[in-house]
Design a protein around this nucleic acid. Structure first.
Lengths: 325, 325
DNA sequence: GTAAAATATGGAATGGATTTCATAGCAAGT
DNA sequence: ACTTGCTATGAAATCCATTCCATATTTTAC
């Protein structure tokens, strides 16, 4: 395959001049520029980008740590990232981790290895200290609140958002509140759990631990959780559900039980997903697209600074009132 | 930052020996190996992978051309790809193209530039000839039937699958069939359209073009298409819908019209999505995970051959009978 | 005891670009 | 006439690891 040296030889110029043409640098006479371009055309030449990456120390790629591509929450953030990254000529390297620390570390090691210019961690199983150790090698941004760490983050105040939802249910007169959650152990899910506990304590509403259902990740999990709930003696009159698709599954299953929503059971979801919109699901919008987009913008800025200081960008949630409360 | 030369100097060996240790090559004495490893540890050294990529001519990355990450069809294929690729130590470079040819070409150019070892094109806006031209630079596999081209493909016989669905409706007594489709112009959607036309012609059932709704990409599009359909004088008694989530949107909207399914309107979907499973939607499973997985396996095999011949892998569809027909 | 094979090691070439530095011609400014 | 400053060009250093080849030592084989 042709290389820059060959182009230089055939075009009768130096490799420096060829490089100048390739990179649109000034100080190349029109004649030489034309000769170089003609030779490039003729030999069907393209740069070996690995050589470029080696010498420049940049790759124009960003690693994305994502537990599961197939969940709306994650794929929406990814979509937001992609929408910003591609026009800026950055590529995304995807790593589906399923919350396995080894996989996450592999992406962080790619930063160390100079394979990527930055890392966006959408959701992590690692400790913040572990991530911090890698900031020496390049910018890292997480999409969850890790406190004021030595890496940037874009986050939503899940505690406040959840509290807001609970408050809303309470103002509407509901006092028997159930809760469907995805992972039991997780950064933002932990905050929601804390909000759920604190809210009950503070407002004096009795908390029913048996109405808290974990591992609700899919539509079918939502339906199954309702089944369990409806076998109980005492049932909640309202549910707060992390993930509109889970709520959707529940709403669909609710039909066979002839449960009227919201008369028999009020529901409030999370994420503002299309399926929820269709079902008239009251939900809390958490700006997933914007989260991905903001994460990219921060990484992008920081790649070009030499000693970037971490940025903590808080996004606003918004309660969308529809018909299920 | 430390490099291999520095490690060699400090450990008192040659760079060759360091390289041997790094790559687990034989013929290194235990003492020297230990010395090298100790120095690596001490200097917190890691390889600059860009140098490795340059000299080996491999990067261990595969480009994925995907129109939209956020659609189940695509994200399921991506999931299948990721599940195979990551254990095999391959990375995926994602390019969301929105069917823009420039974006697709950029990924193919990455193959030319040696930034990636292969390309998986999940769905494309390019002509097969254009793709063929790039096979000189590395293996390419598409997830749609392009005929017997100079690149591999994994595909489902959309024509036959669709015909099968239509036949099923006909056997159940339906004679007034509507059709919701995503893109009007597209490889597999073209095949389905052809099947729809041919089927009506051959079976003598009159075709109602006004019952064909294009651009049904989301749940909400499905609902909106039903709205349009239900404003018509004459309505279909059965629908075949490309995409279970679109069918789901329609089913949810159908409730407000008090349409009984399947008595008033039978529905058959595509993709076997979780939401459809929950709704009891009769559907045609098209093995999306397997499609992604197979695509990776083919690329992976071909990367290690020097003159690979294209592979055409046909996947089987399967009609899943539930309760909407 | 000697030839052949296996083990151990390093020098130097190689992959393919970018960039610093040096040099030189030429126009403008004083 | 002489200093600046801009344009144009190329040689050579640099980025960093892999691998071919040559050489030396040790084992095994007969």
């Amino acid at each position: 395959m042709a290389n820059i040296k060959e182009i230089a030889r055939i075009a009768g110029v130096s490799v420096t001049t060829v490089s100048r043409v390739l990179n649109n640098h000034p100080y190349v006479s029109p004649q030489k520029r034309a000769a170089v371009l003609a030779t490039i055309e003729q030999l069907n030449y393209t740069r070996n980008m690995n050589a470029v990456h080696l010498i420049t120390g940049r790759t124009g790629a960003i690693g994305v740590v994502i537990p599961n591509i197939n969940y709306y929450y994650f794929s929406a953030i990814l979509e937001g990232l992609a929408r910003e990254a591609l026009p800026a000529k950055y590529r995304l390297i995807l790593c589906q981790t399923s919350y396995r620390p080894e996989e996450e570390l592999q992406v962080l090691d790619m930063l160390r290895n100079k394979e990527i210019d930055g890392v966006v961690i959408v959701s992590t199983a690692l400790k913040p200290e572990t991530i911090e150790a890698y900031t020496a090698y390049g910018p890292v941004v997480t999409c969850q609140d890790s406190g004021e760490r030595r890496f940037s983050s874009v986050y939503l105040e899940h505690y406040a958002a959840f509290w807001h939802g609970l408050q809303y249910l309470r103002n509407k007169g509901y006092r028997k509140i159930g809760y469907f959650e995805g992972r039991q152990h997780g950064s933002s899910s932990g905050l929601r759990q804390k909000a759920f506990g604190d809210f009950h304590r503070e407002s004096g509403i009795p908390l029913h631990p048996e109405w808290i259902m974990f591992d609700c990740a899919t539509e079918e999990d939502g339906a199954a959780a309702l089944d369990r709930l409806w076998q109980m003696e005492e049932r909640p009159d309202a549910l707060i559900i992390a993930g509109d698709h889970v709520a959707a599954g529940l709403m669909i299953a609710a039909r066979s039980y002839k449960i009227r929503i919201p008369e028999d059971l009020a529901i409030i979801g999370f994420d503002n997903q299309p399926i929820g919109r269709l079902l008239g699901l009251t939900t809390i919008d958490n700006q997933l697209f914007e989260m991905g987009a903001a994460a990219f913008r921060i990484i992008h800025d920081q790649i070009n600074e030499d000693a970037p200081s971490p940025v903590y960008r808080k996004l606003d949630y918004r309660l969308i009132e529809r018909t299920t409360v």
